[in-house]
């Protein structure tokens, strides 16, 4: 279980860093934080998973999409 989750983390992190469209990068970061919350949960740390789910999925996505909306849409 942990190996599969770590592999998904690796693929998602490389894609987040290399993708051109910033909106797609925000979606991929949301799903990265989702999988990292599951990883913390599987490793028996439910309090860390709770914080990761609240901050990563909600607040961080909202903040990043707000910034992307006010600045540029694509990486130059």
């Amino acid at each position: 279980m942990i190996e599969i989750l770590l592999l998904v983390h690796l693929i998602l992190a490389i894609l987040v860093l290399s993708i051109r469209s910033l909106f797609t990068a925000v979606i991929l970061m949301a799903i990265f934080s989702l999988f990292s919350a599951v990883l913390f949960f599987v490793l028996h740390a439910p309090d860390v998973a709770l914080t990761e789910a609240a901050v990563g999925a909600g607040v961080s996505t909202f903040l990043y999409i707000w910034i992307v909306k006010r600045t540029q849409k694509e990486v130059k």
């Binding site: 909106f23 925000v26 979606i27 949301a30 989702l34 919350a37 949960f41 439910p46 309090d47 998973a49 709770l50 789910a53 609240a54 999925a57 909600g58 607040v59 996505t61 909202f62 999409i65 707000w66």
Partner: peptide, 20 residues
């Protein structure tokens, strides 16, 4: 405690998808 994680993720994931 494990159910609380699922509850919090459900609420905040909905907020994130709403923002997107």
């Amino acid at each position: 405690v494990y159910l609380d994680v699922a509850l919090v993720y459900d609420i905040f994931g909905f907020v994130g998808i709403l923002a997107l």
